[in-house]
Computed example of a mutant assay.
Amino acid sequence: MGNYELFILGSLCLLTLIVVTLAIVWRKKFRTMHGMMISMFFGMNVGLTAGVLFGVTYQGNLYFSTILSMAIGFLAGALCGFCFGILSVLEGVMAGLMGGMMGAMLGEMIIVNQSINLIQIFLFLSISTIFVIIILKSSKETKIENKRWFLKPVLLSVFIAVYIIAGNSLAEKNGELKNSELQHSGHSSTINNTEGFNKNSQFIAIETTEMKYSKTKIVVEKDKPITLTLTNLDKIDHDIEIRTSFFNRIKKSEHNHGADKNMLHLHAAPENMEMLTFTLTKSGVYEFYCTIPGHKELGMIGRFIVS
């Protein structure tokens, strides 16, 4: 778990403390229905924020990310609802569980860049619970005595925006640093591992990032050794599978699970590189794709064109 994930979780913890404190201080000013509304709003949005965060962080393990997200949504909704009574606790808990479950499913299906935008939206909505509390605590008879009153929500909104933008900047820097380090180590490893190959070998390097292959159309020659490297720059597993019986495997990776005579399979763990050497013995077009559930449908597919 990186700096951005810790930033979001820390923000949710701090926000929960603030919301609970405000609810305790002003709880006498709220009706039962108000307490239920605040608890539901807070539990749902915290659950969604945590759900998308864990869903994209632990893609491929939906059960684990769902349990974590539901636990955080449950806790946030329960703590907020506890300030107002048993009905508010039930409302907050159910909303938190629902938000965590939906968020985790959403995080499982999207790429990292999309998740950051959604996390920002849900985090802003979670912080907006403070606005909801302030609005509901004010009676209908309350009058605005001075136009400067409007500066309070405006300044608070600006502060929230700056806070979220700073977190987004942290995420981008963290991601760029990791990708840079991985690409450097990956290219170095590639050079060292290919020095001994025959000059007639065909070298194909494919990288995976944000649920995409860097190459989707590859032209090779029949009966000529192909050295294929798969560098996984994402935080989830990826692989390449080619369904054909017209090949000869020369050298396989330790993580190659393709013992089947009718397919070639190359698997790369998150932020790792694996390699496979083989020849294709018949001209034609061979489809390759990622076999991790849902990845092919998101566009992780390509073609080997054998001349």
Rank of each mutant, 00 (worst) to 15 (best):
N179P: 07
N113T: 08
L118A: 03
T227Q: 12
N192R: 14
L298D: 08
S39L: 11
G103S: 01
T21A: 14
D260P: 00
V220T: 06
F54R: 09
L177D: 12
S169D: 12
T194A: 14
M94S: 12
G100S: 00
M37C: 06
L97C: 02
N3G: 11
N61C: 08
H238Y: 07
N192C: 10
D260L: 09
D234G: 01
L280G: 03
L22K: 04
L136T: 05
K140V: 03
K152I: 09
I165H: 10
N45P: 01
T32G: 11
C290D: 10
L79Y: 00
L118G: 01
I8T: 04
A166E: 05
L233G: 02
L9F: 04
D223S: 12
T194K: 15
E241Y: 04
I119Y: 02
L62H: 08
N113K: 11
N248I: 12
M263W: 10
P270D: 02
L228V: 13
K235L: 04
E241H: 07
V220W: 03
G92T: 04
F82P: 06
A23K: 01
F42I: 09
A71I: 04
D260R: 05
H265Q: 03
M40P: 01
D239I: 07
L123K: 12
S245H: 03
E91H: 08
E181R: 12
F150N: 08
I72R: 04
L233H: 03
H255L: 13
T229F: 04
M273R: 14
I301L: 15
A166C: 09
N262D: 15
M101F: 11
V112P: 01
K147C: 13
N117S: 15
S189D: 11
F42K: 14
L230N: 00
N117R: 15
W26R: 11
L62M: 12
F74V: 13
T142S: 02
S88L: 11
G35H: 07
L228M: 08
V162H: 02
G81C: 05
